[in-house]
Design a protein around this nucleic acid. Sequence first.
DNA 1: CAATATACCTGGATGC
DNA 2: TGCATCCAGGTATATT
Length: 276
Amino acid sequence: MPELPEVEVTKNGLQAELPGHAVLDLYWSGKKLRHSMPLARLRQHILKQIFTRVDRRAKYLLFRMENKATLLIHLGMTGKLGIHPADSPRHQHDHLALRLDDNRELRFNDARRFGVVQVWPPEEAGQMEKDLCEREGMEPFGPDFTSKNLFNLACNRRVAIKSLLMDSHLIAGIGNIYANEILFAAKIQPERLASSLNPAEWRRIVLHSHRILRRAIEAGGSTIADFLNASGHPGYFQFQFQVYGKAGLPCPRCSAILQKIPVNARSSFFCPVCQI
DNA sequence: CAATATACCTGGATGC
DNA sequence: TGCATCCAGGTATATT
């Protein structure tokens, strides 16, 4: 599932490849993803344009074009972006293909169609990006992500700490998998009320968020070459989980049996002994 | 404001 | 083997 590390790895891989290349042709499945996207709008603002830069905000990728238009892509649950030879066969669920000027194609594949593909025209891009940044939460690697700010943010919220970590309007980029892993590393039980965490516990959350997300990005980085070459199957996920998906197995820290419980309807894995 | 439910989707796993 | 059912979860929206 693409969370911050997977989106960051994708961004880095594409930023290394796309700038300077033009879009000579485009294919659009016409299928509705999270929003509908008229082909004419894509063609009007993206065709014949040159990529200048790829950025990430929260789990969104922002492809900036020379005409100042922005192509916005969110990977949703199953979205994958890859660069393939233009003459290689497209796959089921390829929704967008942008043929580049060097006989390669940038392809967006998304089986479950929870993803987003949007175009911001040049005259609207500034405002749209401002709106996006305002409604998304703080970046885990941004200057606001401090134990002090988080303590203040949480001190009046009677919500499970895991739900708060995953609330994209408060904190961007942390989904179910990394929320589980961060809370395990920080030794905090996922159902604890966010308001109950003391400053030392928030310091552990910040420390381990940085450590785990950084490690995951680095692990994904090793597969960038694979994801850029013809075979096309990204597989950024090289990360070694401590608890996610491991209910019934012994805790790697204390050997107690890991448990699985729903927290706000999301599978949550934790050690009942060393997470308190 | 917070908690809960539902919707969007399809592939893979499971059960009969 | 086939068919039904459930589950995975990022995000938005409606309801309690």
